[in-house]
């Protein structure tokens, strides 16, 4: 059981948690993740370690509520506990001084890109950040990213804030302006990562993406997380999660992530239904009191 020290929404459906996990805080490197189980019958879900604090032994995770488990997690508050947390898992990001590094985050992907962007800056890179959201409120961690980025470009799909368009459009623009770019890290929805890969491919720029297949143990024991890269099979939890974007078989990943769509829908419906029942009960109790 690990205690939540801080919990606050930073965007609609996106919540930041600081959770006590001193060993993990000590050990973790940028690019690594934890597996969390909210309660005793909970699923094991992977979440990136966005940051850590050695003084109070906490790690930061940033969670987007997309289904049953993440929504349930996002209902927890400071003082609550999560049942299990294990890590740090996965290979750390390969941090080098590449020269000019672009760090691209789409939606909650910004939270995953953030620790690596920070490390890239510390390694001496000139860091350009591009962080996108559907609308202004979905652009997250702008202040945090700004601290480590030499240039930062927020983008929104609807133009409500920053650059009007997708993160890929901004990247394309920089390239067309003739900017020298040596390294690109892109994290976000799979279609976005694939699009970034296509933008940088003709330029031959080393591009890394962080893959998000469905995981179970996340220690290399089950092979459920296998991804196809360069026509070979890898276990993303131990061989990744970061891979060469130009070699990833995104189609296979998209398909494999759809494996439990029916179940996911059902789990979420059940959960919302249970919350409704609970809420009605509480209301009745309140009324009686």
């Amino acid at each position: 059981m690990n205690r939540i020290i801080e919990a606050r929404f930073i965007a609609p459906e996106i919540k930041l948690f600081r959770i006590e996990a001193p060993k993990i805080a000590q050990k973790r490197k940028p690019g690594q993740f934890v597996v969390v189980r909210v309660d005793e019958l909970g699923e094991r879900i992977p979440l990136t370690i966005a940051d850590s604090n050695l003084d109070d032994g906490t790690i930061t995770i940033i969670v987007q509520g997309v289904g049953k488990t993440t929504k349930q997690l996002n209902m927890l508050e400071a003082g609550d506990y999560v049942h299990d947390i294990v890590g740090p898992l996965g290979k750390p990001s390969e941090i080098e001084n590449y020269g000019v590094a672009v760090s691209i985050g789409g939606g909650v992907g910004t939270a995953i890109a953030y620790p690596t962007a920070k490390a890239l800056k510390e390694a001496g890179n000139y860091v350009i950040g591009i962080i996108g959201g559907r609308t202004k409120e979905f652009v997250i961690l702008e202040d945090e990213m700004r601290q480590f980025c030499d240039e930062l470009y927020p983008t929104t799909d609807d133009g409500s804030y920053g650059f009007h368009g997708f993160v890929t459009h901004k990247l394309q623009q920089l390239l067309e302006e003739g900017r020298k770019i040596d390294f690109v890290l892109a994290i976000g929805p799979i279609p976005m990562m694939r699009a970034v890969a296509e933008v940088t491919r003709p330029y031959g720029i080393k591009t890394v993406v962080s893959l998000n297949p469905i995981m179970v143990d996340a220690t290399g024991m089950c092979g459920g997380c296998r991804v196809t890269v360069d026509n070979k099979t890898y276990f993303a939890c131990v061989d990744g999660p970061e891979f060469d974007a130009h070699k990833v078989d995104f189609d296979n990943l998209i398909k494999r992530n759809r494996m439990y769509l029916e179940h996911e829908r059902k789990a979420l419906e059940n959960f919302i239904c249970r919350i409704d029942v609970m809420a009605t009960k509480l209301e009745k109790e309140d009324a009686r009191a």
């Binding site: 019958l41 699923e43 179970v216 996911e264 789990a267």
Partner: peptide, 22 residues
């Protein structure tokens, strides 16, 4: 087999949706 059995035994997928893992 590891994944299949882990989902069913450790994660109790045979009790889905009472247990979360499908």
């Amino acid at each position: 087999a590891n994944e299949f059995l882990t989902r069913v035994n450790l994660m109790r997928a045979f009790e889905f949706p009472r247990a979360d893992t499908p």
